[in-house]
Simulated assay, not measured.
Amino acid sequence: MLRIALVCLHTSPVDEPGSGDAGGMNVVVLHQAQALASQGHDVEIITRRSTPTGPAVLNFGDRLRLRFVDAGPAHPLAKGDHELYIGEFSEALSALGPYDVFHSHHWFSGMAALPVARTRGIPHVQSFHSIAADDSTPLSDGERAESPGRMAGESWLARESDALIAISEAEAHTIETRLGGSPGRITVVSPGVDSELFAPAAPALGSHESRRPYAVVAARLQPLKGLDLAIEAIASVPESIRPELVISGDASADFDGYIDELSQLASRRGIADSVHFIGPQSRQALAELLRSARVVLIPSHSETYGLVALEAAASRVPVVAAASGGLREAVVDGVTGVVLDSRDPAVWADAIARLLSHDEEADELSSRARERAETLSWARSADALLGVYTGLVSSVAVA
């Protein structure tokens, strides 16, 4: 049995994805933690307290706990402001444990946990989930550094951590080329998907004849996610087959006013009545939303993977995704969905219209997407993590 600390400084894994700064990272951490605990390991997720009330620890069964520690004010912060409280969080970590391994998620967490791991002589594993881009890189439009120390901090973590976990081959390449991480310490651990929760609609409910079809975007509402492209694309679909656009998620404090910008864009394009902002959804509600959609759009400028693509696949719904980062791995172009190199709304509109107009093609993509999703479990993902953990812990024991 391993005693595993999963460190998530800036966001709690139990926050609903799409709310505040919660996103795919929250889903990955929580489900991997549950899978690790179900295999008999003692797992503690550690996050910053962001509300003044509530218990210090939430227990999810005998082997999984969520611990809230005091670091900075007990209220939500803009994501970039968390850098100010790394030191306090690190001090709080130093009083916890014992643990056999620290696994940090996002650079804030790593900056706090790596010094504690070094003091204790235990391994430190780092997952980034997103990586800052220098202004000179082609991705600067979509991924500017969120806080002053980020690029230096990520590079330090890539050099000094005992192992680096990437969620895709694309992210592994970025860790190596942008941060200088050694390829020998990088392991790609693909995410899983809950294929029972995210499941196809029953045949009677799956009929598209009785309702106006809709497309879905599920994401944190920020420019990086390319929501303007989704609106422009839907507006460019011929009116006779144009679907509604349902946008699930909310803007964080860093992007206050962004929803108004998107609403104004929809108004200018004449589709304000067809674009619906429904806020962040529970996992159950998101599953219901996806399984009845005709298509899921992922127009992000950058994604380390794109977990929603897997959830749509499990729901037997075709995806149209941007050819950015790990989305090329989450969606197999022409097999489980459509991957587009272009950000021209007309090109996206053509792809959407084709899926709406050619049921056989859409059904073929959806069927193969579901088949692939059924092979990608969270237990499989946890097994890959354990291989990294046990190797590091064994090396420490031998030393």
Score class of each variant (00 low, 15 high):
A253V: 12
A152T: 09
I46Q: 03
S324M: 09
L392I: 13
G279Y: 02
L245Q: 04
G142D: 02
A133D: 00
G337N: 08
P123W: 06
D363G: 03
V193P: 05
I175M: 15
T47Q: 03
S342V: 06
D134F: 13
T174I: 15
Y389T: 10
G184W: 14
I259V: 15
S300P: 05
F255P: 07
S366G: 03
P123F: 03
E209N: 10
V393E: 02
H75E: 04
A362E: 06
R294K: 14
F68S: 03
S342M: 09
E371H: 14
A117F: 05
V116H: 11
L30M: 15
Q222V: 04
G279M: 05
A204M: 06
S302K: 09
A202R: 15
M1E: 05
Q34F: 07
D42L: 15
R185Q: 07
A346V: 13
A199S: 10
P223H: 08
F102K: 04
A235E: 02
A399C: 11
H358V: 14
S395W: 12
E169Q: 14
V275A: 08
A384E: 13
G18I: 13
A312M: 08
D341P: 05
H173L: 11
T375C: 05
R144G: 09
F277G: 08
R120V: 03
A397Y: 11
S300D: 00
V347H: 14
V396P: 04
R178G: 00
I278T: 10
R150K: 14
E169W: 05
A152R: 15
A382L: 13
L286M: 13
R269Q: 10
Q284W: 12
K225C: 04
S12Q: 11
T137P: 01
E209V: 14
E91D: 07
W107V: 12
V332D: 00
G97F: 09
R220S: 02
